[in-house]
Nucleic acid binder design. Structure first.
Lengths: 216, 216, 216, 216
DNA sequence: TATGAATGAGTCTTCATTCAT
DNA sequence: AATGAATGAAGACTCATTCAT
């Protein structure tokens, strides 16, 4: 082999760099995340980054995708062992921030989301990830409706959005006060939400914000 | 001396600057928000900022507080005209992102939250705001339990967290795809969630992520 | 006047900076002309350049224009005191590099021309300057033809190009060996060239590079 | 050992690299010409250059010489088939930029000349090339004077400079607007210039720039 | 109060060069 | 001979901050 180095290393190194970048972000915040700090995190010098990424933006983008695009695979994997509405519940719960690693993942998500505000290019990329995410849920919900496990009047797209909202919202709370919420509290909360999809009667005729119908 | 309004003007100018800062953040993203851009937004030059804020950090902090500390007052105000569980619903709905202004408020929130990751000082400040926020809900929920409108076994603190999670989570979704979700969809979703608090039977005995108990 | 500084300074400072840039280019070459060297040349620090120029390219462009766009005004001024073919001669001679200052001007010209190769944007700008330059000559030649001072069969555009070529070519030679050519040598050479425009008989029937007509 | 050609290959590779360097310079400009771009132009990677050149400067110098040192051989070759003043004309015309290749040669010349400004070492090298260049013309002119084809009062050194100036000056114009000047225009112009050497009467008594003598 | 000139540190980016393979 | 990983220095550019007016 006349190659000075092997080719496989390249992608692995990109991942290593991305990992380092995430560590720095979590430690110092994205505003203080400099390339020199990232390379120092790895024990290298700045110049090396150029071998693997065209510029800082590409590096951050890669880092973002590397970690988040995997999360919905996790959800799919969690679903596979369950049936009926349990499938939905298993998926949702698998996405909850339950340990340091998953909390950090949500901290990174919050970072990248915040970073995308005001940057339409980044925002579009975040959108895409998000859409892919709730497609996973949408599919399962649609199947559950067809199988009769969930009421027919549910809008799968909206319900997928709702579940994701609940999960992300809880994650936001956990991020903010890591010690304040235990898995034992969050799981039942999320379970009850999913359970509530089965009796969506009250969803019927509600309009806008003045909503006075129920007082009748 | 007729300059009695001097101090008031001073505070008014601080608010004006903070407003400009938020506009710039929404337009360019916080990473691209420079002091010169903020002053240009107002039609002034950089030097003026020094008269009103010690440094950039103070300015951003002030901007953040100015807009977010008001949001839960809005919720309180919305609650006042309602009774029973309707009070809770009205508060929640009043916080939903329904127009450009409120969407922008959540975009700013996402920005500041992301910006606080990795910066413990900022994070603590965000926490405080958040705590104050769900205290408002906690109080109302506690009152509703006492009045019998909500089941006694509910944990007010946790339920407040849940409602806020739902609202913030929905806001996150709206931020990402502003046109995708209408108020007519979000309000019933949120209403159903609040409705589900009334029958928390299923909340009882759920553990961890394996959760197979209910299939018995 | 509530102004911190006067406005007139601004343009003057730009010229001062441009002047410094040219000095550095002449001393170190354009490849070694860094912004820090330019600011050091002026006794300032690097940051100041940003007040007056968006980036390095704009600075260099401004420097180029500042010095070269004036040169053909010099030619026009030189022409004004003369008539007939003497006008042409006076213009041409006024453009010759005769002292340190004018030699430096041609050294800068060579630098900027070389710098524009491979950069179509810069090249277009150089073109424009050049075109304006020989328009000055073209006009005078056209007038001299009409007045009968020069033969009617001359192509003013081509002859303008020829005179400029002669001048620039001589300047190139002078640049390369500053001491080798005296004004006393160059002026007669250029004069004879201009003189030769009066008897353009031989210009008639010459084609391409094989040119065998004279052997007849 | 059948590697008798090793050294020849080495030199051939140097030329190949130099050729690539020139292509990159013409495409991107010398300021943007990086070693990695040069090696990429050849389909190699950066490391290879080290085997053939000590550093970048040596490479560029080699590239410069490779192409320009050949040009006056071209002139000599063109001269050989002609006699009398035709010899001079043939030489001059052979140096005119008439096709893409020769235009590119002058573009490179302008680049290297510009690059040498402010760098005395490079400037001296350019000088040497230039001197060799007009020595070729000087010799021919001297011979033509001796043979009576040109007037005795001509200064061969100065006239060589003049012819080169005319050629280089025209080349400068062609470089700037490649499509603007045809060979059919340039050749007669240059021919007339050379023709004018035969009647150098007017060269006699001209001084400085005030030159009013001829109006007597 | 407001300006804008000037600073200077920090960051990204480029790139020639080295070297193990 | 050729690769490409890694270095490290240098340069452009950004920007918060200071300050004389």
């Amino acid at each position: 082999m006349p190659r000075g180095r092997t080719k496989g290393d390249h992608e692995a190194k990109r991942a290593e760099i991305a990992e380092a970048a995430c560590q720095v972000i979590l430690r110092l915040g994205i505003a203080q995340t400099s390339l020199s700090e990232i390379s120092r995190e790895m024990g290298y010098t700045t110049g090396i980054l150029r071998h693997y990424f065209a510029d800082k933006e590409e590096l951050l983008l890669y880092a973002k995708n590397l970690f988040f695009d995997r999360s919905f695979e996790r959800a799919r994997a969690a679903a596979i062992r369950h049936d009926g509405i349990e499938k939905l519940r298993a998926m949702a719960i698998s996405l909850l921030p339950t340990d340091t690693e998953s909390v950090d993942r949500y901290r990174l998500l919050a970072t990248f989301n915040g970073h995308a505000i005001g940057n339409s290019r980044l925002m579009k990329l975040q959108q895409k990830r998000n859409v892919r995410h709730w497609h996973v849920f949408e599919e399962v919900i649609t199947a559950l409706i067809e199988s009769g496990d969930l009421p027919a009047q549910l809008n799968p797209r909206l319900e997928a959005c709702g579940i994701l909202a609940m999960i992300d919202g809880l994650a936001d709370q956990v991020i903010m006060e890591p010690g304040a919420w235990s898995t034992n509290e969050l799981v039942p909360l999320l379970s009850r939400y999913i359970e509530s999809l089965r009796k969506p009667a009250s969803l019927a005729p509600q309009m806008g914000r003045t909503a006075k119908q129920r007082s009748a």
